[in-house]
Computed example of a mutant assay.
Amino acid sequence: MTSSRNRTGLFAAFASLGVTAAFIPAVLPSAERMLSAELSAAVPALFAGLLVGVLLSGPLLVRRPARVTLILGSALQAVALVAAAWAGDPALFIAAAALAGLGFGLVEAAGSVAAKAAATGSATGLLSALMGTVAVCAALTPLAVAAGAAAMPVLSILAVVPLGTIALLAGGHEPSASASDAPARREVRALLPLLPFAIALPLYVGVETVLSGWSAVIPARALTLDPAAAALGTSAFWALMAVGRFGAAGLRRRAVSPSAILAVGTIGAACLMTAAGLLVNDAPAGALVALAASVVLLAPSYGLILGLALDRLDAARSAAVTGTLVACGAVGGTFVPSLVLLIGRDPASSTTLIVSAALCAVVPVLVLIAARARQRTSTTN
C-alpha cells in the first residue's frame, strides 16, 4: 500500500468516526417514532461500546499492525449503521448503537497510532487535521439524517464511509510489533510522564461531551426553540469544531507550538464558558454566542493532548498505551456529564456551564506540569 493511499485511508477512517459520532444521536427521535419506544439507552450503549473498543485496541495493536484494527473497526461500524437503519425493535437498535461504539473505539485508537507513524515530526498537526475531518463529517451527518428520516432504511447508505475505508486499507502491508518491543512496553516508570495527559483527556472529553451531547438541548431551553430547529444546534456544534480543528492544523503548519495552542484555547474557552454561565438567564443569545466561540477554541484540544502524549513515546510504546489514553477520554465522556448534571441539574443552567468551565481550566495546568517534567528530564539526561 502506497504512502498516499495509506494516508487517504487514514482520513477515511476518521471520516467514519464523524458519521458514527453523529448518526446515533441524530437518528434517535426518528427511531423512537418508528419503533414507538424509548431509546435513550442507546447513547450510554454507544459510550459503553466505545470504552470496550479502546480497551480491546491495546492487545490488538501490540500484536497486529494498526491497519488490521482499522479495518476491523470500520467493518463493525458499517454493520452497526446498517443494523440501526433497519432495526425492527428497540433491543436491536440499542445493540447496534453498542456495536457502533465498539467499532468507533477500535478505529480511534488504531488511527491515533497510525497517525503517529505517518506523521513527519510531531503527531499533533496530523491529528488536528484528522480530528477536523471527524468534525466535518459529524456536522454533515445530521443533515443527511434529517433528509432521510422518513424512510430510515435509506440511511444505511451512510455505511459507504466505513466501507470505503476498508477498500482503501485492504491489501496494504505494514510491519507489526516485534517481540523485541515487549521490554519497552513493560517500562512502567517511563510512562509516568503521561499521567498529566491521562487526567487531562477525560476532563476535556467530558466537557466536550457536555457541549456536544446537549448541543440541541441548551439552545432549545435557553431560547425556547422548536425541537426541530434546536436539532440544528448539533450540526452547528460540529461545524464549529471543524473550524477550530482545521485552524489548529494550519497553525501547526506554521510551527506554532502545540502547547501554546492548547493553553490559549482552553484558557479562552474556560473564560467564555464562564461568561455564558453568567449570561444564560438574562441574555441567553449572548450566552450562546460565547458558547459557540468556546467550541472553536476547545476544538483542537483532543488531538493536541493525545499528540503531545504520543510525541513522548516511540512507535512500540505508542501502540501499547494509546488504547489506555483513549479509554481515559471515554471514561470522562461517560462520567463528567453525569457529575455536571448532578451539580447543575439542568443542561442549560448557569451552574452547569460554570462547573464545565472550571474543569476546562484544569487542562492547561496539567499540560504545563507535563511540559516542565519533560524539561527536567531533558536537563537531567
Rank of each mutant, 00 (worst) to 15 (best):
A114Y: 09
A84S: 13
V54L: 01
A91H: 15
M131T: 11
G49A: 14
A78R: 06
T69W: 05
A129N: 08
I71N: 00
R64D: 01
V113Y: 08
E108W: 12
A138Y: 05
L51A: 10
L106C: 02
L51Q: 05
V54Q: 06
L127M: 14
A129G: 11
L76A: 12
D89K: 13
G73A: 01
A84E: 09
G49N: 15
A66N: 13
A135M: 08
P90R: 06
S74H: 12
A75V: 14
A110E: 09
G111K: 02
L76C: 12
A100W: 09
A119L: 14
A135P: 09
I94R: 03
L55V: 15
S112Y: 03
A117N: 12
V54G: 00
R67E: 07
A119M: 14
T124K: 09
A87D: 04
L60M: 14
T133D: 02
L92G: 14
G73T: 02
V68A: 14
G103R: 04
A109D: 00
T69P: 03
G49M: 14
I71M: 12
R67T: 10
I71Y: 01
A98C: 07
A117R: 15
L102S: 00
L61N: 13
G132P: 04
T120C: 00
L60E: 03
L70V: 03
P65L: 04
P59L: 13
A85K: 00
A98S: 07
A85E: 01
A97P: 05
L102G: 01
S112C: 07
A85L: 00
L56C: 12
A119C: 15
L51I: 08
A118W: 06
A66F: 11
A91N: 13
